[in-house]
Simulated assay, not measured.
Amino acid sequence: MEKVIRCRDVGFDCDGVIKARTESEALRQAAAHAKEVHGLEEITPEVVEKIKAVMTEE
């Protein structure tokens, strides 16, 4: 099973979907996406918790 994060579920108007084998890899990819695409300079613990809350498995 893969960990899946849908950017829209985190609260962005974005169709981005991240899929990774592990939670840590999914979070790393999500942080890179947030910085590159959405201009977030810092990924706070609150953002990480929000991402974890919407992460699913497929």
Rank of each mutant, 00 (worst) to 15 (best):
V10R: 02
E49T: 11
V4R: 12
I5P: 02
T44K: 10
K52H: 04
A34V: 00
K19W: 05
V17S: 07
T44N: 08
I51S: 01
E36Q: 13
A34H: 00
A34Q: 08
V37C: 00
E25C: 02
E23L: 13
D9F: 08
L40Q: 10
H33S: 06
E46R: 09
M1C: 10
A53M: 05
A30Q: 06
I51N: 01
K52C: 03
E36I: 14
K52F: 03
D13H: 07
E46I: 01
H33F: 02
S24H: 11
A20F: 07
V54E: 01
E46Y: 11
R8L: 13
H33C: 04
T56S: 14
E58Q: 12
A53C: 02
D9P: 02
G39F: 09
E41Q: 15
K19F: 01
K52G: 02
H33R: 05
E41D: 15
I5G: 07
K52L: 10
C14N: 10
I18F: 03
R21C: 09
D13F: 08
K3D: 03
A30K: 00
I51M: 09
V17L: 10
G11E: 07
A20K: 06
M1N: 10
H33A: 04
V48N: 01
R8M: 02
R8S: 10
D9C: 06
E58I: 13
E36V: 13
K50E: 13
R28D: 11
V47L: 13
M1P: 13
T44R: 09
R21N: 15
I18T: 05
K19G: 02
D13R: 14
T56A: 12
K50W: 04
E42C: 05
D15P: 08
C14D: 15
E36T: 07
A26G: 08
A34T: 00
K50Y: 02
A31V: 03
D13I: 11
V37I: 12
R28T: 09
A34G: 02
T22G: 06
R8D: 10
A20L: 01
E58H: 12
E49F: 01
K35A: 13
S24L: 05
S24V: 03
A30P: 02
K3H: 05
E49N: 07
V17P: 00
F12H: 12
E46G: 11
G11C: 09
A20S: 10
G39D: 00
L27K: 05
E41I: 01
K35R: 11
A53H: 00
E36D: 15
E2S: 14
R28L: 08
T22R: 03
D9T: 05
G11L: 04
A30L: 01
V17F: 07
G16T: 10
E36R: 14
